[in-house]
């Protein structure tokens, strides 16, 4: 007998999970959200999703080439960035602007920091923040959902030629429920419409219930740390609840706060980005509570109707600080005999 023997160090078994599997399930969970927003806003959003995703993937590939690293397309993380970016943009966002934003998201948000696992900010949100700064008008022009000819006609601004700014077409534009509340002095939307999503908004911020369902799938699948959505949503509801209790005439109720805007999408799909969130459970609680609180503060007192994007980016920025104070409690450091 001359057996071939392998020399390895323990452990010799491994939980069958991988980065690819985690990322793939995030993509899978995003697909229903994408499909619903295509249903709501038509071929414009389909084109938007295709352009941002393709640009994100190509940019990732380009930077892999430039830095001489093996291809990382297979880990699906660039696909997630592309999809998420599209879902945060207005449905009628010009495609050329979307492509530039997707390039910025991957190039500045990820590749520059060393790629997967090293990005301090959520790349999609960095791309979204770039879009808001570079193309302020297009990034805040919203379209009514469910237009009759949405499956045959592109929205006029979608196909704006590169480096031109589309003219605003009043026939198509409308305010989001949050903007109505902020700038027109009251809630004009039934909460139920927020839940099922027959409203104006970014491509992916319409149906709160659908996002919730897809997010829960990811939590059950272990691809999202349950503490992130629980702390973000809990903190936002609690903060809004305090103001609502003090002055129900001025402030919207917590349910409206939870179901409107990009809060669901942000809590389940963006604040939960592993690279840009804390690694310890205690750190995640602090981080999530901070994001929920900031979201409501920006919405209620800031100049913008929506605050999720900046709240998450600020949360990302606070991560190194949070991790300095939030390390796990160690066995055998404090507790003695049964006390």
């Amino acid at each position: 007998m001359r057996p071939r023997i392998e020399i390895k160090t323990s452990p010799h078994i491994k939980e069958p999970d991988s980065v690819e599997r985690i990322m793939r399930s995030v993509v899978l969970a995003l697909l229903p959200v994408c499909a619903f927003s295509v249903y709501q806003f038509g071929i414009s959003v389909a084109a938007l999703l295709a352009v941002t995703t393709a640009t994100a993937v190509l940019t990732e590939q380009l930077f892999n080439r430039l830095s001489g690293r093996p291809s990382t397309i297979g880990d699906y993380s660039a696909v997630i960035t592309g999809l998420l970016l599209a879902l945060t943009l207005p449905p009628a966002f010009p495609l050329w602007m979307a492509a530039v934003s997707a390039f910025v998201a991957i190039a500045l948000g990820k590749a520059l920091f060393g790629g997967l696992g090293y990005n301090p900010f959520n790349p999609a949100l960095l791309g979204r923040a770039f879009a808001a700064a570079a193309f302020p008008e297009a990034a805040s022009t919203w379209t009514q959902a469910g237009l009759a000819d949405r499956f045959t006609e592109f929205l006029p601004s979608t196909l704006a030629p590169p480096f031109s700014t589309p003219a605003s077409v009043d026939a198509y534009t409308t305010a989001t429920p949050l903007a109505e509340w902020k700038f027109e002095g009251g809630i004009a939307t039934e909460t139920w419409d927020l839940m099922i999503g027959t409203i104006a908004g970014s491509a992916g911020e319409t149906s709160a219930l659908l996002v919730l369902a897809c997010g829960l799938f990811l939590v059950l699948r272990g691809a999202v740390n349950w503490r992130v959505p629980v702390s973000v949503l809990g903190s936002a509801a609690a903060t809004a609840g305090v103001f609502y209790a003090l002055d129900p005439g001025t402030y919207p109720d917590p349910l409206f706060v939870l179901a409107s805007g990009a809060l669901m999408l942000g809590a389940f799909f963006m604040a939960s980005d592993m690279s840009s969130s804390p690694v310890t459970p205690a750190g995640i609680w602090i981080y999530g509570i901070l994001i929920g609180f900031l979201t409501v503060i920006i919405r209620f007192f800031g100049g913008l109707p929506e605050g999720v994007m900046y709240a998450i980016l600020l949360g990302n920025a606070a991560v190194p600080l949070i991790e300095r104070i939030a390390q796990p409690r160690m066995y055998g450091l404090r507790k003695g005999r049964g006390q």
Binding site: S18, D75, G115, L116, M274, S275, V279, T280, R329, M330
Partner: peptide, 20 residues
């Protein structure tokens, strides 16, 4: 592959270390 900071190691370490 690179660490994606998922935090699973932190959640399982019985001693309460930060393996990440």
């Amino acid at each position: 592959q690179p660490c994606i900071r998922c935090g699973r190691c932190v959640e399982v370490c019985p001693v309460g270390l930060n393996p990440a």
